[in-house]
Design a protein around this nucleic acid. Structure first.
Lengths: 189, 189
DNA sequence: GTCTATAGGATGATAGAC
DNA sequence: GTCTATCATCCTATAGAC
């Protein structure tokens, strides 16, 4: 089915270590040891430790960007779009759990063009999300709180889903989606 | 007024660097340079780099523990307690912004007894919060969603407040409290 | 309280044999 | 594709002079 390349294997193993300890606290020797080979052997497949991080973070960032573009292109209402974004985050969390940890905590260790391109993707994503919320306020579907507070509350929750999903991973994804949508949109009281 | 000790100065300078790059990516040379002295001179005031992290993280963790104990001891309703906890997080965020970053992202680099004691404080805090939510569901003040989903949504938002507060720091704290309480308790639609 | 000098080890990465 | 050997640099921390 999936003939995983050696480089891909490195990225997967590294991402698990990055998630536990963070990019800076993980050495290339640690990654190699986790794969049962020597550090020098890694360099037959990658050009630097940086490259692992870039591959990992940019891959997930592109998933978010593509997903957001899909949502924006639709004709649904602002609230429906927010629901779709909540589902997007849950889907990506389930499929790229370790990558999200790196994206959240280690993006600042990217360098050069990779850093620039990541920051742009993240800013664009937030701007699209913010505009959807503003549209919802304008059309009176969403309560007139400060859009920034709403954006922050939702994004904070969605961005840290991976921390929680690993603990309660048994919960069915569809149940999680429904509950999360209810809690985030309609509150708890 | 405040005769800041040299050690305290080190903790403050280090916490700002830890917030930007994370504990592992900051060297003692970096900290010393930011203070305009040599790395070796730091060791006249601290015994290790670890000690800086412990001081920082445990200080903030104790603030949360004390605050939670105060809330639990009160006779207010579950929803009122949640409101007080939201305010607690906002107050601590305003006063210990950098420490919260270390607490969120670098606690796993604590060692020995400090690590154990931190994890216990964090677990106790979450357990108290969870019980308040459960009480609210039992008394039908809070909607009967899975308590874990509610706890997660609120805590995720509150724990990352510091990221947002620095960007929009101009916003009055009392306005922030009111808006945040509304959004988290009553939702956005 | 700060300095210079340095110990002792870890780090990212390369060269070249197999 | 992996290995051993190695380089140059960085790391935390200590000793001892001023």
């Amino acid at each position: 089915m999936k003939p995983i390349t050696r480089k891909e294997e490195i990225v997967i193993v590294a991402s698990q270590l990055f998630k536990e300890r963070g990019y800076s606290a993980v050495s290339v020797r640690d990654i190699a040891e986790a794969m049962g080979i020597k550090a020098a052997s890694l360099y037959n497949h990658i050009s630097s430790k940086q490259e692992i991080l870039s591959t990992l973070v940019l891959r997930v960032a592109k998933e978010f960007t593509n997903g957001m573009n899909g949502v924006v292109a639709q004709k649904s209402s602002p609230v429906q779009k927010v629901e779709q974004l909540i589902e997007l985050h849950i889907d990506i969390t389930v499929n790229y759990s370790e990558g999200i940890a790196a994206l959240n905590n280690d993006w600042m260790h990217l360098e050069g063009e990779d850093l620039t391109s990541f920051v742009k993707m993240r800013d664009d994503y937030e701007e699209n999300f913010r505009n959807i919320i503003k549209d919802g306020i304008t059309s009176e579907e969403i309560k007139p709180h400060h859009p920034e507070v709403i954006l922050f509350a939702i994004l904070s929750t969605l961005r840290t889903l991976h921390l929680w999903y690993q603990k309660r991973g048994k919960l069915d994804v569809n149940i999680l989606k429904k509950d999360m949508v209810q809690v985030l949109l309609k509150g708890i009281v």
